[in-house]
């Protein structure tokens, strides 16, 4: 039973990593860029919700505040693209990586300036109550995380596979010029995807903050989510979720069965291990360039 309990809490944590990783993969799929600020967007999403719903701030009912926060974060994502990232159109991945890291720094500073640096908890109906099934305790928040993550992954997967917009997004990432010629408004598509990933970040933030306290440095969680996305292989949505779950499950088991000090090392060691043997992740899409 002990093992089962570890597994369940690992899965719930893994889903949060998976949700952030989904944000990475979304942007990677559509723009071939990697948003290192995704973790910080999640942090911002959590704080925006907290600012709307907590009693000491605006005190809106949670079920109004949450959709509002998701919408706001979508807008912020879109604006980030419009104001900053669009100027980097056509530049190399590395430039975008550095830019988004810098954006993360700024977001962290802004959040700290508005909401302070003390850890705060989100007053959310999701954080109350828990279930007990066959001796395993499952928090309401854990359950919500798992359900929402699975639904969101399925929804986004279908979106990319089935809808015209989803396909256009993928086309735009493979060859911008060719996509232009086929009549795809590449820049607007890029803006939309940033909006979408802002919304996903807000969802991740709400769920994360329901599970525990949040502070401006929570965005550093993005690094772990990053490991998840790589293990799953960038460019694959189910891969991102799988990677998140792997990292999430490894952590509690490592801290239980490994000596203290070795447990934090485990996810990153796994990451390096995967990169050594599958340099482009477990679900890789990289092929050789034609000359």
């Amino acid at each position: 039973m002990d093992v089962l309990q570890l597994l369940v809490s690992g899965l719930a944590n893994g889903c949060v990593y998976g949700l952030i990783a989904l944000g990475f993969v979304l942007i990677y799929k559509a723009t071939e860029a990697v948003n290192f600020a995704q973790g910080d967007l999640m942090m911002l999403g959590a704080f925006v919700t907290l600012g709307l719903t907590n009693a000491e701030y605006m005190d809106l009912p949670f079920w109004i505040a949450a959709p509002l926060a998701i919408g706001l974060m979508a807008l912020i994502g879109y604006l980030l693209d419009l104001v900053i990232l669009r100027h980097l159109f056509g530049q190399s991945q590395t430039a975008v990586v550095i830019l988004t890291i810098a954006m993360g720094f700024v977001l962290r500073f802004v959040a700290g300036a508005i909401w302070g640096h003390e850890p705060q908890t989100l007053q959310s109906p999701l954080s109350q109550g828990d279930f007990q099934v066959a001796g395993v305790v499952l928090g309401m928040a854990d359950l919500a995380v798992i359900v929402v993550t699975v639904l969101l992954t399925i929804f986004l997967y279908q979106f990319f596979q089935r809808t015209k917009l989803g396909l256009a997004m993928q086309a735009a990432s493979q060859n911008q010029m060719a996509a232009y010629y086929m009549g795809i408004p590449v820049k607007r598509v890029q803006g939309l995807i940033w909006g979408l990933s802002g919304a996903v970040a807000a969802v991740a933030g709400i769920l994360f903050a329901s599970k525990g306290a949040i502070d401006p440095n929570a965005g550093l969680l993005g690094i772990k989510a990053f490991a998840a996305a790589v293990i799953g292989g960038f460019g694959s949505l189910p891969g991102a979720l799988a990677g998140g779950l792997i990292v999430g499950v490894i952590e509690p088991f490592a801290s239980r069965y490994l000596a203290a000090g070795y447990s934090q090392v485990a996810p990153y060691a796994l990451l390096l291990f995967v990169l050594v043997f599958r340099p482009h992740g477990l679900f890789s899409q990289v092929r050789t360039k034609k000359v």
Binding site: H87, L88, A95, I98, L99, A102, F105, F109, V110
Partner: peptide, 18 residues
């Protein structure tokens, strides 16, 4: 002000890249 240094540094970097 905690985080001010990295925040300003990040902002400078964004301006440079743009």
């Amino acid at each position: 002000i905690p985080g001010l240094e990295t925040g300003v540094f990040g902002a400078i970097l964004i301006l440079f890249i743009l």
